[in-house]
Amino acid sequence: MAPVTEIDLRSASVRELNGALHRAEPGTSWRVLHPGGAHNLAVGLDAAVDVVIDGHAGYYCAGMNQHATVTVHGNVGVGVAENMMSGTVRVRGSASQSAGATAHGGLLVIDGDASARCGISMKGVDIVVGGDVGHMSAFMGQAGRLVVCGDAGDALGDSLYEARIYVQGRVRSLGADCVEKEMGPEHLAELAMLLKAAGRDDDPAGFRRYGSARRLYHFTTGNSY
């Protein structure tokens, strides 16, 4: 097993951490100790490295990730894995607002809850949330899949484009132009794949699917939202 390089944020700066991770060789493993909720940890990674953050992280943890696997043993602040392109980010705790915002690819797993706007403007990422998501989740979601194993807050999928949403629990309300859609065999298979990738054993049959009614795709006098 390859050795793990440890960076202790009691003595190292965030700049030193990110600089080291930007220079890291693919296949290397890193452990971040005492993160103390610092912002911008492990951002802009561009290699298949494995990073474990041993504690809570602040804003934008693993932002714009490419290729790397980042695991946070704690909670994360706003915008975890924002604009991620590829790779995997896993949060063992809960996430604040805008988790996975605008992310284009990769897999974001949040074992706990995610706050408001989870998956906002998502552009291809897959997001699996073990708990609940807050209001306006998947707002203007363009592509990708959002799986919510708990409940969803108000205005789910508001102004949705082509992102697909699966919710196992209760949906407090749907946003503008978001509707419940039929759950076909292909959707059950897709959902099963996503749950498996996230390491979960929930039954896909217990979920409902939501998507865009596509009534806002063209400006008309009837766009009264």
Binding site: N40, G44, Y59, Y60, V78, S98, T102, R117, I120, S121
Partner: peptide, 18 residues
């Protein structure tokens, strides 16, 4: 989508710098 107000913007700018 992921920041609101000047305090957040400060963190966002630092993210882009990082």
């Amino acid at each position: 989508p992921d920041w609101t107000g000047p305090d957040d913007l400060e963190i966002k700018i630092r993210e882009l710098r990082e």
